[in-house]
Amino acid sequence: MKNSANKPSWKERLHEIIYEADTKEGKLFDVILLVAIIASIILVMLESVESFDTKYHDQLNISEWVITILFSIEYVLRVITIKKPSKYIFSFFGIIDLLSTIPKYLSFIIIGSHNLAALRALRLLRVFRILKVARYIGASNRLIVALKASRAKILVFLFFVIILCLILGTIMYMIEGEENGFTSIPRSVYWAVVTLTTVGYGDIAPNTPFGQFIASIIMVLGYGIIAIPTGIVSSEMTKHEGSDLDFNTQSCPNCLADRHKENSIFCYNCGDTLNPDERNT
């Protein structure tokens, strides 16, 4: 029988609601948060429509301020409910949460800065916490691990692509010349990048037969190059297939480490207790 002294503190309970999605309260909090994020993004979009803004400017402004204040309160609560606030403040989501909160305040100083509130779309990444389905969480974890494992190969590949664009751009500058729009090597390299990535803006195009032949080779080469990073990441994901499907949404109240295995009691990173109900027992 637990006495009142052994009950989790309000900070521990609040942490469980805000940072985790294992409880009904946590899931409800995340759903409300995502609805607010989507609503704020819609408000920013509607405000950019001049005719709509002219008619409903005051209502849009008030609504945006209400959401901004709610996000500000949420940010403060996230900071005070963990033992090491810097872990959250300087984390990916901590920075995104701050950047998505301050635009409205900055609008007092910088006109139009409130439009940066569209950054709140990045906060929708938390949808994986609500969709607490093993295959979704596992897939996202495997993707992160695969990207980290393949970053060296991808960097080498990108370095090779940059060199290739420099060489091809220089060649096209020599072949086509200024009269055909290739006025400098940097501009020619820009054309090579656009062509190699199969974007093809069409603002610069080769006119000589030899230049068109080189362009054709670059276009075909572009399709092959696009597939290489995909193959690298896919290979790494295959290596980690099925290795991390048993993680839950628990977040350590001390260091904010996540990706804990189901039924974990202690944090794998710092050893702190994960479940408030197990604390002080």
Score class of each variant (00 low, 15 high):
residue 1 M to L: 11
residue 3 N to E: 12
residue 4 S to P: 00
residue 4 S to H: 06
residue 5 A to E: 14
residue 5 A to T: 12
residue 6 N to F: 07
residue 6 N to G: 13
residue 8 P to W: 10
residue 8 P to N: 10
residue 9 S to I: 03
residue 11 K to L: 13
residue 12 E to I: 02
residue 12 E to L: 11
residue 19 Y to E: 06
residue 19 Y to D: 08
residue 22 D to C: 04
residue 23 T to D: 11
residue 24 K to H: 07
residue 27 K to R: 14
residue 29 F to T: 05
residue 30 D to V: 05
residue 31 V to H: 01
residue 32 I to D: 00
residue 33 L to I: 03
residue 35 V to E: 03
residue 35 V to A: 15
residue 36 A to F: 12
residue 39 A to P: 02
residue 40 S to K: 09
residue 42 I to C: 11
residue 43 L to R: 01
residue 47 E to T: 09
residue 49 V to I: 15
residue 51 S to E: 14
residue 54 T to H: 09
residue 56 Y to W: 15
residue 56 Y to C: 05
residue 57 H to I: 01
residue 59 Q to G: 03
residue 59 Q to Y: 12
residue 60 L to Y: 04
residue 61 N to S: 13
residue 63 S to P: 03
residue 70 L to W: 05
residue 73 I to A: 14
residue 74 E to P: 00
residue 77 L to N: 08
residue 77 L to C: 13
residue 78 R to Y: 08
residue 83 K to D: 10
residue 85 P to I: 02
residue 92 F to Q: 03
residue 93 F to T: 13
residue 93 F to M: 13
residue 94 G to I: 06
residue 97 D to G: 00
residue 101 T to R: 00
residue 102 I to W: 00
residue 102 I to H: 03
residue 102 I to A: 05
residue 103 P to A: 07
residue 104 K to G: 01
residue 106 L to Y: 00
residue 106 L to Q: 04
residue 107 S to K: 00
residue 107 S to A: 12
residue 107 S to F: 01
residue 108 F to E: 03
residue 108 F to D: 10
residue 112 G to L: 09
residue 113 S to K: 03
residue 117 A to V: 04
residue 117 A to G: 15
residue 127 V to Y: 01
residue 130 I to H: 01
residue 131 L to Y: 09
residue 132 K to E: 14
residue 133 V to Q: 09
residue 134 A to L: 00
residue 136 Y to S: 00
residue 139 A to R: 03
residue 139 A to I: 00
residue 141 N to E: 15
residue 154 I to H: 02
residue 156 V to D: 02
residue 156 V to M: 12
residue 156 V to C: 03
residue 157 F to M: 05
residue 158 L to S: 08
residue 159 F to W: 02
residue 161 V to N: 03
residue 164 L to D: 00
residue 165 C to Y: 02
residue 167 I to Y: 02
residue 174 M to S: 10
residue 174 M to Y: 09
residue 175 I to W: 04
residue 176 E to I: 02
residue 176 E to W: 04
residue 178 E to M: 07
residue 181 G to W: 04
residue 181 G to A: 06
residue 187 R to T: 07
residue 190 Y to T: 05
residue 191 W to P: 01
residue 191 W to D: 02
residue 193 V to N: 01
residue 193 V to S: 05
residue 193 V to C: 12
residue 194 V to A: 09
residue 194 V to K: 04
residue 200 G to L: 13
residue 202 G to D: 11
residue 211 G to H: 06
residue 212 Q to I: 13
residue 213 F to R: 06
residue 218 I to K: 01
residue 218 I to R: 02
residue 221 L to Y: 06
residue 222 G to D: 08
residue 222 G to L: 08
residue 223 Y to W: 15
residue 224 G to N: 10
residue 224 G to I: 11
residue 230 T to W: 13
residue 231 G to V: 10
residue 231 G to D: 08
residue 235 S to H: 12
residue 239 K to D: 08
residue 239 K to H: 07
residue 240 H to K: 12
residue 241 E to H: 10
residue 243 S to M: 09
residue 247 F to D: 04
residue 248 N to Q: 08
residue 248 N to L: 02
residue 248 N to D: 15
residue 250 Q to L: 14
residue 255 C to I: 08
residue 256 L to P: 00
residue 258 D to G: 10
residue 259 R to K: 14
residue 260 H to A: 07
residue 260 H to F: 05
residue 260 H to Y: 08
residue 261 K to A: 07
residue 264 S to Q: 03
residue 267 C to W: 06
residue 268 Y to H: 15
residue 268 Y to A: 11
residue 271 G to S: 09
residue 272 D to R: 01
residue 275 N to Y: 04
